[in-house]
């Protein structure tokens, strides 16, 4: 039986809350951002929970100080603010300092992509993968369901260094059901479905879109492989290279700007560096910031990453291979 889906943050925060009773080295910081599970943390562990207020720069510097004192820190805020409001703090106090000091610090950013549907571009987040993967020493993690988000707790506590977890704000269906199996943290990606000719690599919410598109393509007689990439900077490069080398076409799908250094750039570079002869279609948010209102799927269609838009693009791409 497949587990009932819950919010990614509740899954991860529950793991943290449970661990805090036995591990006195876990500290939780946040920038005035909550969740029902967070209430349990602040009630049960008041001396290892701090809300710095709406002050992300201080959130990062205070968290850095705590990490220097040996705490495993989880810092929690809305995704665009924990990545962009305090970018220099991330660069100086985490990426740079962790070059010479062991610092276990884990940023939990909630609101990947368009997950804050009606809040508009300030609260939506289409630049974070590009920016965070630009910082050496940072590990960028992008789960597609709550099971992956929960599993990442183990990765966070087992590995020193700064990490950024981009979580969706909405409750997404379960991908890692018993049939699929657990997300393998050592590899950093998982083959969700196997086809031929074309391999689709997607992350976060877009792995759900990719699965739906694959169903529609199958109805048209096109079988595609789907890879859910959840460890964007730490995935097993050799395995990934070997895998994509067997296809004629590669499609990357991300809920971030197209052609601005996100997952697409990662794979353009991977193929170019390793001389992999593969055609690459990069699907991402087309154009700039938008102010239209609508459902997430309506917004996605407007910017070229909706189910229909992706289906059309991939179908044309396959026809040209």
């Amino acid at each position: 039986m497949t587990e009932k889906p819950i919010a990614m943050r509740d899954a991860l925060l529950t793991r943290i809350w449970r661990a805090m009773s036995s591990d006195e080295n876990i500290y939780f910081t946040c920038a005035d951002f909550g969740s029902p599970v967070l209430d349990k943390i602040r009630v049960d562990f008041p001396d290892r929970f701090v809300n710095v207020g709406i002050a992300e720069q201080n959130l990062i510097n205070v968290s850095a100080g705590l990490a220097l004192e040996g705490f495993k820190v989880f810092a929690y805020a809305i995704a665009p603010f924990i990545t962009m409001r305090c970018f220099e703090q991330l660069r100086v106090s985490l990426a740079l300092l962790s070059e010479v000091r062991p610092m276990n610090i884990n940023l939990i950013g909630v609101g990947a992509g368009y997950s804050y549907v009606v809040s508009g571009p300030t609260h939506q987040c289409y630049e974070d993968i590009t920016l965070m993967r630009a910082l050496p020493n940072f590990r960028v993690l992008s789960p597609a369901d709550h099971i992956t988000a929960s599993a990442m707790f183990d990765l966070c506590t087992a590995n020193v260094g700064p990490k950024y977890l981009r979580l969706d704000a909405q409750v997404l269906p379960v991908i890692y059901s018993q049939d699929i199996g657990a997300p393998n943290l050592e590899t950093g990606f998982k083959i969700l479905r196997t086809g031929s000719k074309v391999c689709i690599i997607s992350t976060g919410y877009m792995s759900h879109t990719a699965m739906k598109v694959a169903d529609r393509l199958a109805e048209s007689g096109i079988q595609v492989t789907i890879i859910d990439l959840f460890d964007i900077t730490g995935f097993d490069q050799a395995q990934m290279q070997a895998l994509i080398s067997t296809y004629k076409g590669l499609v990357t799908i991300e809920e971030g700007f197209r052609g601005r250094g996100g997952v697409d750039a990662l794979f353009f570079e991977l193929a170019a560096r390793n001389d992999i002869d593969i055609k690459h279609l990069n699907i991402g948010v087309e154009g700039g910031y938008r102010f239209e209102l609508g459902s997430r799927s309506e917004l996605h269609e407007q910017v070229g990453i909706g189910e229909k838009a992706v289906f059309d693009e991939v179908k044309n791409f396959v026809a040209c291979l």
Binding site: Y27, V50, N61, V62, E69, L96
Partner: peptide, 23 residues
């Protein structure tokens, strides 16, 4: 102890260290 080239970071990091020591 820390990175100082860019100004304005030391006090926040110090506050975090002080909080950690107090804890």
């Amino acid at each position: 102890e820390t990175v100082n080239g860019s100004l304005g970071h030391g006090l926040g990091v110090s506050a975090g260290m002080a909080l950690g020591l107090k804890t």
